[in-house]
């Protein structure tokens, strides 16, 4: 897993780490029972405060993405269905709305936006397949 921070995104640093770990899990580059780098290692690599990484890992644990095992580290959780489907859909509503607004401002018509989503989905699937083969 490679975390890349973008200080020009305006997104809090700990949230960027949370989002990228979740993306890595969704893409299959982090699998259940795999360990996240230790707080020290990731903090040093990214040159961020340890407390920031610790906060990100705490948030990932709260969201049920990882389990935090004292003294051993953080591990990706194998989660069947941690939340009910409607709850999971509700969580996605906000980012989807933000995307729709952004698309409107960029003058991307709905059909083109849907195409783009399809294209990104295909790419993610391809990456997943590659990860599974390697």
């Amino acid at each position: 897993m490679r975390v890349q921070l973008n200080f020009k995104s305006g997104v809090p640093v700990y949230l960027q780490i949370v989002e990228q770990v979740k993306a890595a899990v969704a893409a299959g580059s982090l699998r259940p029972d795999e360990a996240l780098p230790s707080v020290r290692v990731l903090a040093e690599e990214l040159r961020v405060n340890r407390n920031t990484v610790a906060r990100a890992y705490g948030e990932l644990a709260v969201q049920g993405v990882v389990t935090n095992e004292a003294g051993r580290g953080c591990f990706i959780r194998d989660r069947g269905q941690p939340l009910r489907k409607d709850a999971r859909r509700a969580l996605l509503t906000e980012p989807v709305d933000a995307l729709l607004v952004q698309a409107h401002h960029l003058r991307i018509p709905p059909a083109e936006l849907l195409d783009l989503i399809q294209e990104r989905l295909r790419l993610l699937e391809q990456r997943k397949e590659k990860e599974n083969q390697s």
Binding site: R40, A43, E44, N49
Partner: peptide, 9 residues
């Protein structure tokens, strides 16, 4: 980061 914050960050 690595050494100063090693304990009780």
């Amino acid at each position: 980061i690595g050494s100063f914050q090693e304990w009780d960050p």
